[in-house]
């Protein structure tokens, strides 16, 4: 579970987040929509512990302070998964797992990659030969292999082709069905509508609207979003 309460964060006098409160329950996928600079990435960075809030509390399953130990329960997928180009996909996954004190056999690691949609024959290829989508899948595998209860995704579908995006959606749903809390920041209204259970719209650091994804169609969601952005 992710719980943010009355979070305020200011950068050089500018309010990046203003009294933000939101909750992502276990088994839930929450999509955070917003324009550039709305505060989506700041929200993720606060949860990851890379930033400290000026006010408010953050709890991620347990009481969360800026501690790297707590990040062991979090799986994170950045917008651009820039992994080590001189390692293969499998080696990258192995390395990142080891950093998280996770020890998997080669076949287990390979299985994670396959589960995340990476073809078997690509596992041992150098990452420098990967497309952006393939790298993104390794990034997803890194988060997936942690078997975390919390997943933070920053524009995860950026650069993925429609098929890969769909696979990602399926994977996220699978994780959620296993009890994970997933917070996904995105611009992609359609993907958010498809993947998430609940959706929040951020504007100027404020959560101005929350809704259940099932209550709106993609077109309605786009209308709502544009309406808020234009006013």
């Amino acid at each position: 579970m992710i719980h943010l309460q009355n979070i305020q964060k200011t950068f050089k006098g500018h309010k990046a987040l203003d009294d933000l409160s939101l909750e992502v329950k276990a088994g839930e996928i929450y999509g955070l929509l917003g324009a550039n600079g709305a505060g989506k990435s700041t929200t993720l960075n606060l949860i990851l512990g890379f930033l400290n809030p000026d006010h408010g509390t953050i709890s991620v399953g347990i009481n969360f302070e800026k501690s790297n130990k707590s990040s062991k329960n979090i799986g994170y997928i950045p917008e651009n998964v820039n992994l080590y180009p001189y390692l293969s996909g499998l080696e990258n996954l192995d390395y990142f797992c080891k950093l998280a004190d996770l020890k998997y056999s080669k076949s287990e690691l390979s299985a994670f990659l396959t589960e995340c949609g990476l073809q078997q024959d690509s596992h041992d290829k150098s990452l420098s030969e990967y497309s952006k989508g393939m790298r993104q899948k390794v990034g997803i595998a890194i988060a997936y292999a942690k078997k975390a209860k919390i997943y933070l995704l920053d524009e995860p579908a950026s650069g993925l082709d429609p098929l890969a995006s769909n696979e990602l959606t399926e994977l996220l749903k699978k994780l959620a069905s296993q009890g994970a809390s997933i917070l996904m920041a995105s611009h992609d209204i359609f993907r958010v509508r498809e993947s998430c259970h609940r959706i929040g719209i951020l504007k100027n650091g404020k959560l101005i609207k929350e809704m259940n994804a099932g209550d709106v169609t993609s077109n309605e969601l786009e209308g709502i979003y544009l309406n808020f952005m234009q006013n």
């Binding site: 960075n45 990851l48 890379f50 790297n68 130990k69 990040s71 062991k72 979090i74 799986g75 994170y76 950045p78 917008e79 651009n80 998964v81 820039n82 992994l83 080590y84 990142f96 797992c97 950093l99 998280a100 004190d101 990034g139 890194i142 942690k146 933070l152």
Partner: peptide
């Protein structure tokens, strides 16, 4: 510059 540092730290290392 590559943004990898966040990924590394999110793995729990310091």
């Amino acid at each position: 510059e590559s943004g990898r540092i966040k990924l590394l730290l999110s793995q729990g290392t310091s």
